[in-house]
Amino acid sequence: MDHLTKLENESIFILRQAYSSIKNIAMLWSLGKDSNVMVWLAFKAFLGKIPFPLVHVDTKKKFKEMYAFRDKYEKLWNLNLILGDCPPISKIDPSLPPAARSAARKTEGLKKILNEKKFKGIIAGIRRDEQNTRAKERFFSPRDETGKWDVKNQPAELWNSFNTEYPSNVHLRIHPLLSWTEIDIWRYIKRENIPIVDLYFAQNGKRYRSLGDKDITKPVESNASTLDEIIKELQNTKTSERSGRLMDKEEENIFEKLRSKGYM
């Protein structure tokens, strides 16, 4: 079995296992490339119809192309989409550096919708190779009601045997894309012909490698305007995927700090 098919099967297995063992589950749809791959894998796992809602936690600061994409594919893919809103920046911990503080709005938005809908499982498209605290994640990762990630005492996760038994105040973050790398995602998008937002393709010597809020996300220098060119570019790059995400650079452990409070 080839590498992409192996990854695909692992993700399908995780999605099915999550759905069969957790009541009241939802999937985060951030409109980015990884998220779209995840939705695609859910179509495969559930044979064409996703049996739980998709949640877009909307900071209201996304690019207009992203909103257009959302409206189009919500209809085309016949999704059960729930929109969550985020509190204003004034309600967020002022001790955080500016970009991180802005990103933390999304954490609060997520917690809010978790509380409202009483979700016990949230499927999120994070990957190990994106960021080195994400590299330490489990496929099924427990969080308490405050969203706290107890990173110093994560549960054992043996083989593909995922524990889903937790006290009632705990919800699980499920990470079906954990084993994928950035280039795997692009190769799979190409193989499966998965739609993505145009911002990933270069225009006038720049493209977005990773999409976030428009005020804290910067494009990178690039002339890659097709899938093949992007894949080729990634084979040779020495800059990181999140180099355009301003929050990552503000403090040494800022990402861990955000994640331990419930960021994805």
Partner: peptide, 9 residues
């Protein structure tokens, strides 16, 4: 297999 006691592996 894994062994689970209450909520813990």
């Amino acid at each position: 297999f894994s062994v689970i006691d209450q909520f813990e592996v």
